[in-house]
């Protein structure tokens, strides 16, 4: 059996755990890197006002639809009252269900209604014909492996703060930083200069976000703001990466930019055809950092 997982949006938050979980159950997972073709697919299905990340997501679905038996799309509503999600995440399932003719596996994450990931994965497992005992074992192993890996990644990221090189914090959602088409091209550009690159999504600092914004109620924005609070004395500059037109970033990043006293660069990405423009901006930003 093959399950397709689009490498966009929630992929970057859940895939590692899913990989270990489905590995235990002997299910093959399929996903592909984002490239120009995927984006073209996405543009075909997407509405013109959708954000670039969502367009990429739809492109992945279009690519996966004939290549697997099921596609896994959870509906993620919130992780508690003050940890809500972007509204796109809560309409993904219905969007795909109406646009494409594919079989979808789904579960709901809504901590306010006591629906969490464990229950969701169990319901999927039962639907696919596994026993509860198998699922329990697989889930335990997946959790163990996942946390080990996460801890290691976070340690690496945290240790970068002690480096003697100039340090730059990249603030963006995971699905933008680690995307092959958006984030990685920018990071490749940055690697030309002698900088230490620190990712905002690899900290466990969401409790610190209230130093910058008291009423913030989006989970992943909280995490990146917490990272800013944690690192602001140690880094030399911040780069914000936003896909056009991201609803949350339009408000939160604006607020942060008004409050911090560090040099920052705000990259809004619509279509990477204009790569030369971004290169120049990064270059001039690098000059500023090096002169400071």
């Amino acid at each position: 059996m093959k399950i397709g997982i689009p490498k966009a949006l929630y992929y970057y938050y859940f895939f590692d755990k899913w990989r270990y979980f489905f590995e235990e159950l002997n299910i093959e997972l399929i996903s592909t890197n984002t490239d120009k073709k995927i984006l073209e697919f996405g543009n075909k299905y997407a509405n013109s006002e959708m954000c670039l990340s969502l367009k990429i997501f739809l492109g992945h679905i279009a690519y996966l639809k004939d290549k697997c038996d099921y596609i896994l799309i959870p509906k993620i509503d919130n992780f508690g009252l003050n940890e809500q999600m972007c509204s796109n995440f809560s309409s993904l399932y219905d969007l795909v269900n109406n646009l494409f003719d594919v079989k979808i596996l789904t579960y709901e994450i809504n901590h306010q209604k006591k629906k969490n990931e464990k229950k969701g994965l169990f319901s999927i497992g039962l639907q696919l014909g596994f026993t509860k005992k198998q699922l329990k074992k697989a889930y335990q192993i997946a959790c163990l492996k996942y946390h080990k890996q996460l801890k290691r990644d976070m340690m690496i990221n945290f240790n970068k703060l002690e480096s003697t090189k100039k340090k730059i914090l990249i603030v963006a959602h995971s699905y933008n930083i680690h995307d092959d088409y958006i984030g990685k091209t920018i990071i490749k550009n940055l690697e030309k200069y002698n900088f230490e690159i620190i990712y905002s999504d690899l900290f466990n600092a969401k409790n610190l976000s209230h130093y910058l914004s008291l009423n913030l109620y989006w989970k992943y924005c909280k995490e990146s703001l917490g990272a800013i609070v944690l690192c602001k004395e140690k880094v030399d500059g911040i780069i914000f990466i936003t896909t056009f037109p991201c609803g949350l970033d339009s408000l939160v990043n604006e607020l942060v930019m008004r409050k911090i006293q560090l040099p920052y660069l705000n990259l809004i990405i619509d279509d990477l055809d204009a790569l030369a423009g971004i290169e120049t901006r990064i270059e001039s930003f690098a000059d500023i950092i090096e002169q400071n």
């Binding site: 299905y45 959708m50 972007c86 796109n88 309409s91 969007l95 109406n98």
Partner: peptide, 16 residues
Amino acid sequence: SSFCTPEIGVMPILDK
């Protein structure tokens, strides 16, 4: 209004 994320998400469903 422009960039209203929740509504953009349902527009394909309304089309259908």
